[in-house]
Every structure is written in structure tokens, then in C-alpha cells.
């Protein structure tokens, strides 16, 4: 019996959300009186594995097959499943992500393990195995009882601090047998914003709405984001109008974020937008209309014209950094 954590990496750098998953897995392993093991696929350096150890893992299974650097859903499913069976784990933990969600769903059938997604806290083990998860796009929670002996938990981002344990991780190279069929879907190209802070992973997000009037005005959003070390996002009309790329669209039908600080500029606060941001720890709203519904969901608000407010706010932040 043990807990296995499936980590993801970006060009060899383990994602922050995956380190959170490792720490979650470790805390769960402690309450189950067992160990936290990790499976990593593709090229991950020893230094990165050290960080995985500090986040709480005592053992790593490294499947070095370079074909797995690409996020091919069926191939990752096959590899993780083989490691899971070999390791004797009965709980798999992973961070919710575009790839993680897709892989977890297939694994749930392959391993006959219940999958609980959007998990927001450690399970309650007092009576069976109960997990709290976010539902209705953050408007509510459900306590879910898991009925299978094997389990998969996909955890939401930013629900816990990454541990700083002194754990020395033992990394074992592990070979899996991948049949051609799992590479049936061919990735023919990738189009990715380089050097940007990734929106779903970011600790601070600055989003602009239709109140920004046009794409030519995004400079002041980017200046604020830069001063804060934040990723940039936008409302749905902004991406529909092609002012900003689709992968920045936040909300019910876009990216759901849960940063420590969400800054909304010129966004009215429609219920569908709020659904994507209501898990943020703090919300700062900048809007010239004091009646904008977003203020009701905010912790901090600035009533004023974004074009006057943003440069001043950016200066004030730079001054204390």
C-alpha cells in the first residue's frame, strides 16, 4: 500500500502544480502510514528530482523514454498504469491540467479506480474515504465517498503549500513496454507563448475586460502584470473579439484559476466570469462603475478609470518591491 504521484514537467522543469501534488500525496501517505512515490515521464534532470524529493517523495520511478516528452494521452496512460501496478500503490495523485485530466480519466477505467477531480483538501479517513471537491464551477463543494479500493485524486491548484522536507529521493530508471497503438494520435505542431508565466500555474493573475477598450491598450495591463510577476488573462468577449489569445480566456467556459491574487480590470463580474475565479484567495477589482457586480465578489476594490489607476498602482507596487 502506498501513494503514487504522477508529475508533469515543462521542458524538464517540474510544474509547480505537480510539486503541490507531491506534497499532497506525502501528507496523505503520512495519514495512511505509508510512502509517497513519484512517476515522471520523459527527460527530467537529477536536480529536478531533488526538488521532487524535497516536496515529500521518497522514491521516484523515472521512465526516460523520450517519446513521452510529448503529452500523448494514451501513451502517458499506458506508462503510468504500468508503474502504478508495479509499485503496488493504491492511490494515484495528480494535479489537474489539460493533460492530467485526460490521462486520469483513461486510467480510472484501466485501473478500475474511482477518479475524484477538483479535490480541494486531504481526504477524511475517519469512516471510509471521503474527499471534498469543488463543483458547479466553484459555486459549491461536494463530499464524495469513494467506493473502489484503488483511487485517483486530481487536485486543484494552490490548495496547499509545497513542503520543504529534507527527503532524499531514490530515483529508479523504469522501462515500460509501449505498443504502437498508444501513439495513434500524432502531434503535428505546438503553438505556445514563450517565456510567459503560465496562466493556470500563476500565483498572481491580472485580467482585462471589455473596459480596456481595445487590444492596443494592453500595455498597461502587461506593465502591472510584470511589476507583480503575474500572468495575464481576459474575459470571454475579449478573446471572442481576438483582442487576446483564447488560452487567456478565464471563466466558466475558459480557464479556471485559483491564484493567491486575482486582479480584474474593466471586467463587469458576470456570473460566468466569476465562476472561473471564485477560488482565488484574494480578488482586487478595478472598475469605473461603483455598481459593477464584481465588487460584491472582491476583497479589495478601486473605483476609477483603469487608464488613470493602472499606472499609479504599478508605480506603487514597484516602490515597495
Amino acid at each position: 500500500m502506498s501513494v503514487l504521484i504522477y508529475i508533469e514537467h515543462e521542458e524538464g522543469v517540474v510544474k509547480k502544480s505537480s510539486l503541490e501534488a507531491v506534497s499532497y500525496g506525502k501528507s496523505l501517505a503520512e495519514s495512511l502510514g505509508t510512502e509517497a512515490l513519484v512517476v515522471g515521464l520523459g527527460s527530467i534532470s537529477p536536480d529536478e528530482w531533488t526538488l521532487v524529493g524535497h516536496a515529500g517523495a521518497s522514491k521516484g520511478y523515472h521512465v526516460t523514454d523520450e517519446r513521452l516528452n510529448a503529452g500523448i494521452i494514451q501513451a502517458h496512460t499506458a506508462a503510468v498504469s504500468e508503474v502504478f501496478e508495479h509499485s503496488g500503490a493504491d492511490v494515484l495523485v495528480l494535479a489537474k491540467s489539460s493533460l492530467g485530466d485526460a490521462v486520469a480519466a483513461r486510467l480510472s477505467v484501466k485501473l478500475q479506480a474511482a477518479l475524484v477531480s477538483n479535490v480541494v483538501s486531504l481526504p477524511d479517513l475517519a469512516e471510509g474515504f471521503k474527499v471534498k471537491r469543488s463543483i458547479f464551477t466553484g459555486k459549491a463543494f461536494a463530499i464524495t465517498a469513494v467506493q473502489t479500493s484503488k483511487k485517483i485524486l486530481a487536485i486543484k491548484k494552490n490548495i496547499l503549500e509545497i513542503r520543504q522536507d529534507a527527503t532524499d529521493i531514490a530515483v529508479e530508471e523504469f522501462t515500460v513496454s509501449l505498443v504502437d497503438r498508444v501513439f495513434a494520435a500524432k502531434i503535428t505542431g505546438t503553438d505556445k507563448a514563450e517565456g510567459e508565466i503560465s496562466l493556470p500555474e500563476a500565483d498572481i493573475v491580472v485580467s482585462g475586460g471589455r473596459g480596456m477598450k481595445g487590444p492596443e491598450n494592453w500595455g498597461i495591463i502587461e506593465d502591472l502584470a510584470k511589476a507583480l510577476g503575474a500572468a495575464t488573462g481576459c474575459s470571454k468577449p475579449v478573446s471572442d473579439l481576438n483582442w487576446r489569445p483564447h488560452h487567456e480566456h478565464v471563466g466558466q467556459t475558459g480557464i479556471k484559476v485559483s491564484p493567491s491574487l486575482y486582479v480584474a480590470v474593466g471586467i463587469s463580474g458576470a456570473i460566468q466570469h466569476l465562476a472561473g475565479v471564485n477560488a482565488s484567495k484574494n480578488i482586487l477589482v478595478i472598475n469605473k462603475d461603483p455598481e459593477a457586480p464584481f465588487f460584491k465578489a472582491a476583497d479589495y476594490g478601486i473605483v476609477g478609470d483603469a487608464f488613470e489607476v493602472l499606472p499609479k498602482l504599478t508605480e506603487a507596487i514597484k516602490a515597495i518591491k
Binding site: 500524432k186 505542431g189 503553438d191 488560452h247
Partner: peptide, 10 residues
Amino acid sequence: EIEGGKEELE
């Protein structure tokens, strides 16, 4: 859609 962009598949 992937984090920060998209990938093309066949």
C-alpha cells in the same frame, strides 16, 4: 488546448 497555447494533432 494546452497550458499557454495549443497543439495540433492528427
